[in-house]
Amino acid sequence: MRIDLFTVVVDDYDPAIEFFVGVLGFELAEDSPSLTNDGRPKRWVVVRPPGAETGILLARADGDHQAPPSGTRWRGGWGSSCGSTTSTRPTGG
């Protein structure tokens, strides 16, 4: 079994990228425009440790139902909630 991506829900992409890339030394593997299921713009952002195959998909919360639980602020100022995702890239982006 192999895990291609693991999802971390963030409040904002750029502070999360700065934390993973600038602080932890991860590589920015991808930062591409994408769309939500109902056609609204968002980004497909993947970071990974240097040389690693498994990446972290930084997913921005889409409404209160996906917002990180209160009190889960990371040092970089963004919320974090974890889950898993498939390795299939979304269509439309």
Rank of each mutant, 00 (worst) to 15 (best):
H65F: 14
Y13K: 10
V10H: 02
K42G: 00
D64P: 15
W44Y: 13
V8I: 13
V23Q: 09
L28M: 05
D64Y: 09
G25W: 01
V10N: 07
E27M: 03
D12S: 14
R60L: 09
E53I: 04
D14I: 14
E53S: 14
E53F: 07
V23I: 05
P33D: 08
S34E: 05
P15W: 09
W44E: 00
R60F: 11
L57D: 05
V23H: 11
I17K: 08
R40G: 08
S32A: 15
E30S: 14
N37F: 14
G63V: 01
F19W: 11
E27A: 09
P50K: 07
R48A: 12
I56C: 13
D12A: 13
D11P: 11
A59N: 13
N37M: 12
A29V: 14
L24A: 07
P15L: 03
V46P: 01
L58Q: 04
R48L: 08
A16Q: 03
V8E: 12
A59W: 15
V23N: 04
A29P: 00
F20G: 01
D64H: 12
D12I: 07
I17M: 08
L28D: 02
R43W: 04
V45R: 12
A29N: 10
K42W: 06
S32V: 10
L58V: 01
F19R: 00
P49Q: 15
W44C: 00
L57V: 11
V45D: 06
R40H: 13
R48F: 03
W44S: 03
V8W: 11
D62L: 14
L57S: 08
P41Q: 06
F19K: 00
